[in-house]
Amino acid sequence: MGPGVRKHVELLVAYAVQFIKVRLAYRADFLISTGASMLATAFAFGFLVVLFQKVPQLAGWKFEEVLFLYGFSLIPFGLFNVVSLNLYNFGNDFIIEGKFDRVLLRPVASLYQVIFEVFRIESLHEVVVGLLGVWLAASRLKLAWGPLEFVLLFFFALCGAVIYVAIFLMLTCVSFWVEDRVGVHPPVWNLIAFGRYPLSIYSGFVQFLLSWIIPFGFATYYPSVRLLGRPEFRVYAWLVPVVAATFLTMAIALWNRGVREYSSTGS
């Protein structure tokens, strides 16, 4: 296991360095894409400010608290965006165009190769902006944080990214069975935005959906509740790693079944 892990980390670094080199080679493309992406984030924050000029509170949450939730939600989201590109392209590029054969010919886990082949590095700005939002909100709220909270912040963010990866990976696996050019990702992708606001503003159905079916609430809302020290749903914070691990395990199991399906049909 030891040398295996080391090899995979080395490979990941090598893949990332390569990819960044390529990205920087197309400088204009990279700058435009980063600029557009940052503009979108800025608009979203602008919306939040406008919203709170009309309503002082949102389901008992102050502006700063929502700002915290919003900022925190960008951290796992940004991390996820960095590695998610091939999840959307998988059906087209790998199954239909046949790149998956190449993956199966290499002595490295197939999922590892697919996920870490491309990176959307410009999405790292979402992590930075998110951290800024969290810092701004936390300092205005005068949150009394110990070292544990700082550790939790990063741990939760990581769990959140894992939850996103797991959910979209399951959707990606559909390509093993169904030739899918449209993509099943967009409708679910739109649900991510729901997790940027307190779940308590939604109907019971939406709360249930975002907690137990497509658990985006565990990526953003429940961790923020714990970090803000709010009274509701405090115990849920302990479920965050459990949900992340469970969904990731299910997604990987589904992926492995998909690979077997591919190996017997060649698609």
Partner: peptide
């Protein structure tokens, strides 16, 4: 998209 030599270097790592 990457130079041939870079592909080779990656493969060297992949195959130890």
């Amino acid at each position: 998209d990457i130079a041939v030599i870079e592909s080779f270097k990656l493969l060297r790592k992949i195959y130890d």
